[in-house]
Write a protein that binds this DNA or RNA. Structure first.
Lengths: 154, 154
DNA sequence: CACAATTACCCACTTATCCCCACAATGAGA
DNA sequence: TCTCATTGTGGGGATAAGTGGGTAATTGTG
């Protein structure tokens, strides 16, 4: 599972070197095959090992292509799901349209989220993180928690 | 299965070069035979490998030709289904009436959707994607999710 | 049967991708 | 502190992919 965050740089060719600690695992378990797609709600990209992505694909497949909302989900997620294979030096090439969507500059933040990574522009990430913490503290006690969060213990 | 999107160009002769990564598979599994038809709800074309299309055809055949809605579906899909074989350099020729229906210009976006591709004009695709994402974000939390989507976890 | 129009094949050019090597930065061990 | 190994970064160059256009073959039509 992935956790923690890494500051990386995107070079002029759009390549991103994944942290060395994950390379062996990604190679042995998924032949270095990764899927990168866009996030629905935030200006970042999602990076899945192929095996993880295929589970999502199965769920997507079971959605109705006649229901507009479900079709939309299929189209956004699947339509942007790009196969990004690691090259022999552990780098992946992010296509321009994905970089654009997340406004990726040179400085990148790679964030581990268990079964996937999130790819953020460094400054976007910083801003969002600050805003999220602020929101969380401001809401403390005042906003109703969802059922699942009621039982959440750290 | 097909996924991800590819920016391609339609040349003056109406030819579209499919991504090299799929050509071998399409040749060995379907002798390079593809079926292109129009989409029911969106201004794009659908491109099926022959084997996939034949499954659709069976379903269409089982519909009643007396029920107006079902008859309409048959007429639209079947009536526009065009055989598009790959030539020896991996290109297919899109007939003019199909190009017109999807308002295809020079810049094309080929979008993988599991068992088929969607063929969009690049700007139409961009606009639609932006609108879809906006809709998705605006609805977040406010609109009732279908049962299937409740359990959807990325 | 001849002609025009369309389609397919072929070759050439441009662009993008991948592999490789080199260097810089970092951290570990002697 | 020095050396060595590992990781991250940058860029040249071979190779493949995408694109455009000429020409031959095929099809359909009068």
């Amino acid at each position: 599972m992935f956790r923690g965050s890494f500051t990386l740089t995107l070079d002029d060719k759009g390549r991103l070197a994944l942290p060395a600690r994950y390379r062996d695992r990604l190679l042995s378990e998924n032949q270095g095959q990764l899927i990168c797609t866009i996030d629905l709600h935030d200006p970042c990209l999602l990076l899945f090992p192929l095996a993880e992505w295929e589970e999502i694909e199965e769920k997507l497949q079971s959605l109705s292509s006649l229901n507009p909302q479900e079709r939309r989900l299929q189209r956004i997620l699947l339509g942007n799901a790009t196969e990004c294979d690691m090259d022999k030096s552990g780098r992946i090439l992010l296509p321009a349209f994905l970089r654009q969507h997340a406004s990726l500059g040179k400085n990148i933040r790679l964030v581990g989220q268990l079964n996937k990574f999130e790819i953020w522009d460094e400054t976007t990430w910083q801003d969002r993180l600050a805003a999220d913490i602020e929101l969380e503290q401001a809401q403390a006690g005042s906003v109703e928690l969802s059922e699942r969060l009621q039982d959440f213990v750290l």
